[in-house]
């Protein structure tokens, strides 16, 4: 039997992604979520889903800059756990906040733009989660990479969903939107080539400095 070896970063990731949920459940038992538990739980799970998705999107550019390939192993789990938190977020909305009141859910979910955008984001993540396996990767061949570029759209829509829920003057969602756009920009071929050239030049410069010092 082939023994699967985990990179330390994978172990940190697989443990780390459960921490927000553990804190949420702990705070729930300790009555630490304030008066409006449902809102707080919804906000926290939504925020965690967004952060994990952004981290997943950050993996490729960061591994390019650092020239460190093992990082790429984290891209899929971060995306999948983002989907997990998005699912909890949605389940709280449907089952706890609206308590399966279909009339109210229909009104809230299908008539309000923030909810439509949130639902769209969730559906994209669902498709990406389903097709995240090696089997689907093989089956979809080239189209798999194209399909999974939708992660950027999901990231962007998640920040729109966030921005449309806050009051005027709250800047946080716009910061996240900026981060997603920067990460998208980093994938544009000329930008990527530029990053690589800066990296190799600085690496050789560093190398020369070290040799001279010797």
């Amino acid at each position: 039997m082939k023994r699967r070896r985990f990179h330390p970063l994978q172990i940190i990731t697989y443990i780390g992604v459960w921490i927000p949920l553990a804190i949420l459940l702990w705070d729930l038992t300790q009555d630490n979520l304030g008066a409006d538990i449902i809102r707080e739980a919804t906000l926290r799970t939504g925020k965690t889903a967004l952060v994990l998705l952004v981290l997943s999107l950050a993996i490729t550019p960061v591994s390019t800059i650092l020239n460190y390939k093992p990082l790429l192993k984290l891209r899929r789990p971060l995306g999948l756990y983002s989907f997990m938190y998005a699912s909890i977020h949605f389940a709280i909305f449907i089952g706890v906040d609206y308590f399966f009141d279909l009339t109210l859910i229909k009104e809230a979910l299908l008539e309000k733009r923030y909810a439509i955008v949130g639902l769209t984001t969730g559906l994209i993540l669902l498709v990406l989660a389903i097709t995240s396996t090696q089997g689907w990767k093989r089956r979809l061949k080239k189209r798999w990479a194209q399909l999974h570029k939708l992660a950027y759209l999901a990231g962007f829509l998640a920040t729109v969903h966030f921005a449309w829920l806050v009051k005027q003057g709250v800047v946080e969602p716009w910061i996240w939107m900026g981060v997603v756009l920067i990460l998208l920009l980093a994938r544009v071929p000329p930008v990527k080539r530029f990053t690589i050239s800066v990296r190799s030049r600085s690496a050789s410069w560093l190398h020369r400095c070290i040799s001279r010092a010797r």
């Binding site: 409006d36 906040d97 009141d101 109210l104 009104e107 309000k112 733009r113 923030y114 449309w164 829920l165």
Partner: peptide, 8 residues
């Protein structure tokens, strides 16, 4: 941006 039809 959101419904006022219901409340928590």
């Amino acid at each position: 941006r959101w419904s006022q039809g219901s409340e928590r």
